[in-house]
Amino acid sequence: MKRKLPPVFVLLAAILWGTTGTTQALAPEAAHPIAIGATRLAVGGLFLLLVLLVIGKFNFRGWPIKTTLLASFCMALYQPLFFSAVSVTGVAIGTVVAIGSAPIFSGLIEWVYVKNRPSKIWWNSTFLSIIGCLFIFVNKESLLVNPIGIIMALGAGLSFASYTFISRTLVENHSPLSVVAVVFTLSAIYLSPFLFIYNMSWIMSFRGMGVSLQLGIMATGIAYLLFSKGLVHVSSSTAVTLSLAEPLTAALLGVFLLNETLTITSWFGILLLILGIGILLWFPKKLKSNEPVKNGARIS
């Protein structure tokens, strides 16, 4: 039972991430996507830091400063790269390339740095999930393949995969709450200039506050805390593939809350995504990379 809980934590985190699109659609018109991303990290980081201070479990002793700075930089970099890619090359291509490339980058990073070759179960699950993602978004809009947008989307995918890999080494020696609190507070500091570049008057409205709190507390603070707890016993490559439940959740929320319609192709993509994610949840023992790591190497 304990072995099955960590993947479920990651899946729940991805479901919470999937609410961001619907929440942003309900945001005031004056809210710029990048400003929303910066606000999301600021509220999330502050929330996690307050929780950590209340609990009083934070300990600076032996804290890896360079690793923490790198993890926070990767998370901060992901936000503007993803939003910029979507604005340049469209939601369909930007989302598919960014989210679809992240599991591949994650598998390659594990292969190169910890010599942990992904299992056949992981490859099959990742392939089904990425194809499912493609089918969900392919009919959303006219496709615009912009080279700069593609590069940005790939950068976003690499940033998220790198953040996941680095964070997994942090949660081996520190509590998940401490890790996400410190990392997201630093990430918010990195992106704080955006709060002065864009119009932030929308955040003072009732709807703006609601959107900021939902994105910061639920879709960032609690979501990444669950994600980090899952990373303690789930490999980074498996976690990133499970995170593909994010577009699945976003698509279903669009149908039930925003009155969007999905084509038969999109529904087929949803089925493939569910199948791909289900494989990882039902066959955790066949994933060789599920063992915890210590100091960058897998414990056998």
Rank of each mutant, 00 (worst) to 15 (best):
54 V>W: 01
259 N>M: 09
40 R>I: 02
273 L>T: 08
282 W>F: 15
276 G>F: 09
148 I>H: 04
46 L>I: 15
120 K>F: 13
296 G>A: 11
56 G>T: 03
4 K>F: 14
159 S>T: 14
281 L>E: 11
186 L>N: 02
1 M>V: 11
250 A>L: 03
102 A>Q: 11
34 I>L: 15
63 W>G: 01
106 S>W: 06
260 E>Y: 04
202 W>D: 08
167 S>H: 07
238 T>M: 10
183 V>R: 08
46 L>G: 09
151 I>Q: 00
163 Y>F: 05
57 K>Y: 10
253 L>C: 08
188 A>F: 07
8 V>W: 13
167 S>F: 04
234 V>W: 04
210 G>V: 12
46 L>N: 01
216 G>M: 07
81 L>G: 05
35 A>Q: 06
298 R>I: 15
217 I>S: 07
3 R>A: 10
164 T>W: 00
276 G>V: 06
137 F>D: 04
136 I>A: 02
53 L>A: 10
45 G>R: 03
196 F>R: 11
221 G>L: 10
239 A>R: 01
126 T>D: 08
244 L>F: 02
97 V>R: 03
104 I>M: 06
250 A>W: 00
292 P>E: 08
174 H>L: 11
228 S>E: 12
49 L>I: 14
56 G>E: 01
239 A>C: 08
249 T>D: 04
292 P>C: 12
86 V>T: 10
9 F>C: 15
213 L>S: 09
15 I>R: 05
156 A>V: 14
139 N>F: 03
224 Y>C: 09
191 L>W: 05
120 K>E: 12
248 L>V: 08
67 T>R: 08
189 I>N: 11
218 M>H: 05
243 S>Y: 00
241 T>W: 08
195 L>D: 06
186 L>G: 06
259 N>I: 03
219 A>R: 10
226 L>H: 02
251 A>D: 00
295 N>T: 06
297 A>F: 12
237 S>V: 12
42 A>G: 11
178 S>G: 06
25 A>S: 09
199 N>V: 10
243 S>E: 11
39 T>A: 15
162 S>Y: 05
26 L>S: 08
228 S>A: 15
42 A>H: 08
81 L>P: 01
47 F>A: 13
8 V>R: 11
214 Q>M: 12
147 P>Q: 06
222 I>C: 03
1 M>Q: 04
146 N>E: 11
99 I>M: 02
28 P>C: 10
161 A>G: 00
267 W>I: 09
186 L>H: 04
150 I>R: 04
99 I>L: 03
209 M>N: 15
54 V>E: 01
194 F>L: 13
262 L>P: 03
195 L>W: 02
48 L>C: 11
211 V>Q: 02
25 A>L: 09
296 G>M: 08
105 F>I: 13
255 V>L: 13
150 I>L: 05
233 H>Y: 13
266 S>E: 02
79 Q>H: 04
252 L>F: 14
22 T>C: 05
160 F>L: 15
81 L>S: 07
170 L>Q: 04
3 R>T: 14
156 A>K: 05
204 M>D: 14
133 C>R: 03
147 P>S: 07
290 N>S: 14
39 T>I: 09
21 G>I: 03
49 L>D: 08
163 Y>D: 04
233 H>C: 09
162 S>R: 09
128 L>E: 06
70 L>N: 02
186 L>I: 02
186 L>S: 04
100 G>Q: 04
256 F>H: 07
170 L>N: 00
298 R>E: 10
222 I>Y: 01
